[in-house]
Amino acid sequence: MAPALDTTFAALADPTRRAILARLALGETTVMDLARPFDMSQPAISKHLKVLERAGLVSRGRDAQRRPVRLEAKPLAEANQWLESYRALWEARFDRLDALLQKLQADEGAPLPPKPGRGRKPKEQT
């Protein structure tokens, strides 16, 4: 699983390639149509497509003339799962940090003198 993900992340590291994938998420298209919104030559786009194809992120149709490009969802889903578990760990940490910050703020906001009628010692160590 690791080498495949490696290739996926390498393919995703480039902004043009991410933009191509975003466009393909709307549906399959030809290289010519794909190149249109980018300020790039068709050969340059083809080069990016080769990288995406090697990573299994896109596939080309059999139709010899059009050879439509389409998005392959599986590697993307795997890469996403990888990132998701990393994100989940940090989210759990940050949720604990939220709770801690809330407590720190509550402690700060607490009135400095002890409440009247409560004979509490100023310091009570556990």
Binding site: F9, L83, Y86, F94, L97, D98, L104, Q105
Partner: peptide, 27 residues
């Protein structure tokens, strides 16, 4: 929580907290 990979060697995360920087710094 937003997690992105801006390049091959980086991980970037962005998140907001309901406390001022001085408390986040302390944490």
């Amino acid at each position: 929580l937003d997690v992105t990979l801006p390049s091959d060697t980086e991980i970037r995360m962005t998140r907001s907290f309901a406390a001022p920087p001085r408390l986040v710094w302390a944490a």
